[in-house]
């Protein structure tokens, strides 16, 4: 049984080694959607950095800088309060140079938040992934995103 699991793992590694930068970035985003933080962590390089740029209809945009490890930790904690997550991948672009690639993904992310899970949220944004090739496939060296998060009233009037 262990041999089969090992073989499956090796096959998966071989498949990821051949995926495109856009496929790796999409896998990261889908893993985030499904709260699969083991996959999210596996795609980040050891010294990865993250910048979140949040927009609001009122006020200046805010940039929040963190290490990849700290960002994943926070996201994992926050996901405990989210449910019915849905991520629509709307558009993508990929540019490459010798030694790396930049992938941009435009998305709409929605779901329910809060202890009672009755407050809807929606986020429109664009992810930017800076990737470098590694032995087991592409690794994300920088993950940056710009988004506008909206939390309209829930069915029970919650905010």
């Amino acid at each position: 049984m262990r041999e089969i699991a090992l073989a499956m793992g090796l096959l998966a590694s071989a498949a990821f080694a051949q995926e495109t930068p856009t496929a790796a970035a999409t896998r990261f985003l889908r893993a985030f959607e499904h709260s699969d933080f083991a996959t999210v962590r596996s795609l980040l390089a050891d010294d990865a950095t993250v910048i979140r740029t949040s927009l609001s209809p009122k006020g200046s945009p805010q940039n929040q800088r963190s290490s990849g490890a700290a960002w994943v930790q926070e996201a994992e904690t926050n996901h405990a309060y989210l449910r019915d997550l849905k991520l629509d991948l709307l558009e993508s672009s990929e540019l490459r140079i010798d030694g790396g690639a930049v992938v941009n993904l435009r998305y709409r992310f929605s779901g329910l938040v809060g202890p009672a899970g009755k407050t809807a949220f929606m986020s429109d944004g664009i992810d930017t992934y800076i990737l470098i090739p590694a032995q087991a496939g592409w690794k994300i060296l920088q993950y940056n995103y710009i988004e506008r998060l909206e939390m309209p009233r829930g069915p029970g009037g919650e905010r």
Binding site: S93, E94, N104, R106, D124, G125, I126, R148
Partner: peptide, 17 residues
């Protein structure tokens, strides 16, 4: 050499090679 632009109503991301 190459440009890509993705945008939503309040924000945009442009990459230029």
């Amino acid at each position: 050499l190459e440009t890509s632009t993705l945008a939503f109503d309040q924000g945009a991301t442009v990459s230029i090679r």
